[in-house]
Design a binder for these strands. Structure first.
Lengths: 165, 165
DNA sequence: AGAGTATATCTCGATATCAAGAAACTTGAT
DNA sequence: ATCAAGTTTCTTGATATCGAGATATACTCT
């Protein structure tokens, strides 16, 4: 089946036959798919009264394991937002009682963000919902295809994640 | 090589061994990669004094072919933003002289957005820069692998692009 | 023709994000 | 000890986005 990127690439080949636009076949699809996923996730999380950004922060802490705490700096590398954004997110989650800010005992510049029990429950519930939705989106692909896709994508993400980026 | 999603998935398997988190192997990579691409693109476009959103609108018009005009509604489906956002974008591009708003002769509710000659040049230059950067990012993949990746991604994007979504 | 529904674009208020810089603290070298 | 450089987090101001509703025009059916 054709998608919007097929149409986009065909248009470029008509308008700029001098250029090789093949890279768009991969990377424009990644960007557009991410945008669609954002919208779908927003809907899925709404059932749990969570915004996507709240989910990102809460699940980062949840994954850390007991006692469910990380520094704002560690949260930055997981969520790919700037420090100002993270400060703001932590403020709002703290106001809602989903996280708590504690002084870092080993570095007085630092802070630890800890998940509250309610925050933990909300994260766990929303994760189950997200996985159900994602399975539906991936439904057309076989297990083998999903594995291939994951491996190919890893080759693109690894440089960003490992080099300072 | 390992990436951040490998670590993320391993953490979930430790914390929630009851859940099957395999969907994240694909879709978390898509979201994170898109975020990295956004940042990289912002840098590439800065050399041409263009914001990513400006590039998106200008190139949509450029691809339409002479006389380089589309309705705001057509621009919406290409850029995946809301109508309020698009009105705002057109206003700002018009103020910079890169596009022009014309009445649609066949529908008096409608408007046509037309690319100016300068807008066209800027779009063409920025596209060349973007393609160079994307080739570098895709560098590790063979031609065959890029083709496989594009095909697998198309299976995920097609439903969003074809069903009203 | 007229009523009701659908479409196209714009307006407006609320909000999340970013970038840059400030403030507090730590680290390492002399 | 002290100083300079590095880090960690927060503050601030500007800006882009979204969502909901408003307005104007087009279409459809009787």
């Amino acid at each position: 089946m054709e998608d919007e990127v097929d149409r986009l690439v065909a248009a470029w080949r008509r308008e700029r036959p001098d250029l090789d636009v093949e890279p768009l076949e991969v990377l424009s699809r990644v960007s557009r798919l991410a945008r669609h996923l954002d919208r779908a996730r927003r809907l899925a999380f709404a059932e749990h009264q969570l915004e996507p950004w709240e989910f990102d922060v809460l699940t980062s802490l949840r994954r850390a394991g007991a006692p469910y705490q990380l520094s704002p700096g560690q949260l930055l590398t997981q969520t790919l937002v700037t420090s100002g954004t993270m400060t703001n997110r932590i403020d709002r989650l703290a106001k809602k009682g989903l996280v708590e800010r504690l002084p870092d005992p080993s570095d007085r510049r630092g802070v630890l963000v800890r998940l509250s029990p309610e925050g933990r429950d909300r994260a766990d519930q929303a994760l189950a919902g997200l996985l159900a939705q994602e399975r539906a989106i991936l439904g057309r692909l076989s297990r083998t295809e999903r594995g291939e896709l994951a491996d190919l994508l890893r080759q693109l993400t690894a440089p960003f994640d490992n080099i300072p980026g």
